[in-house]
Amino acid sequence: MIRFDRVTKRYGHRAVVDSVSLEVRKGGLCVLLGESGSGKSTLMRMVNRMVEPDAGRVMLDGTDIANVPPESLRHGIGYVIQSVGLFPHWRVADNIATVPRLLGWDAARVASRVDALLQLVGLPPEDFRARYPHELSGGQAQRIGLARALAADPPVLLMDEPFSALDPGIRRGLQVALRRIHAETAKTILFVTHDVEEALLLADELAVMQDGRLLAHGRPAEVLRRDADPVVKRLFGEATLAFHRLGTLRAANAARPASATQPAEAQLPILPPDSNLKQALMLMLESGTDQVALPGGATLHLSDILAAA
């Protein structure tokens, strides 16, 4: 869907993005992770031509975007930034309607779309439509930012540290909302963050950047392998790398199937469905056992976790 083909961007003599090749598959949620100044935003902004590469090209659905006029390209790409950037003199409904109006939708279609989007991002339309941005909390404003980006139903969404300025609790809520919206709408999302926890929570695919170069790319479990690049290890924190890795592995894959010879003990704590090994370990620590039960009757032992990690 989005393909970077050896793209480079220089400011002065410094290559801020250095010959990066990366592909984000259709419907995927790819998280660009890296320290501040590693070139994540620059790479992301090449997709909607807010930054023009000095070398290489960016393909969108097989088309070289250099041949698409920037304005019409951007109408088809949702854009969410950390500071939100709602227009302060426009009501919430008008803010959300920005791109549909640029595309010339009629008023009735715009109005019903605005209400549907407010519902999608979890804000009651009748309460929020007519508000001005200064009447919103930070979390509400970013929900509106997300609704605005989704307004014309673009297939691609670019999100540049959208939740980084929010309090942890609010951020958590928005992350959950984004996962839900991604599952419902199957958008292709490129998501920039410097927060390891956030990256692991959201990513289908992880791309790790350092000094303008792509260090690692793949499913989170692959990126966090035991023999990962030392710089990747340092980025995730050497001490907690194994712990983070547990978060990328499904508990069901490491569990022992229910067997007749060893019937599951009735009083074992039960792990919720679709849990990962980190959650399994937390449950064991919490309940003081070395075994937990899975919903299907399978059991998971502490030694299974050690073997999988």
Binding site: M50, E71, R74, Y79, S83, G85, F87, V99, L102, L158
Partner: peptide, 13 residues
């Protein structure tokens, strides 16, 4: 600047 960035990013001329 952030409002101008958002405006351009949405494809306003």
């Amino acid at each position: 600047a952030d409002i101008l960035d958002a405006a351009r990013g949405q494809g306003m001329g």
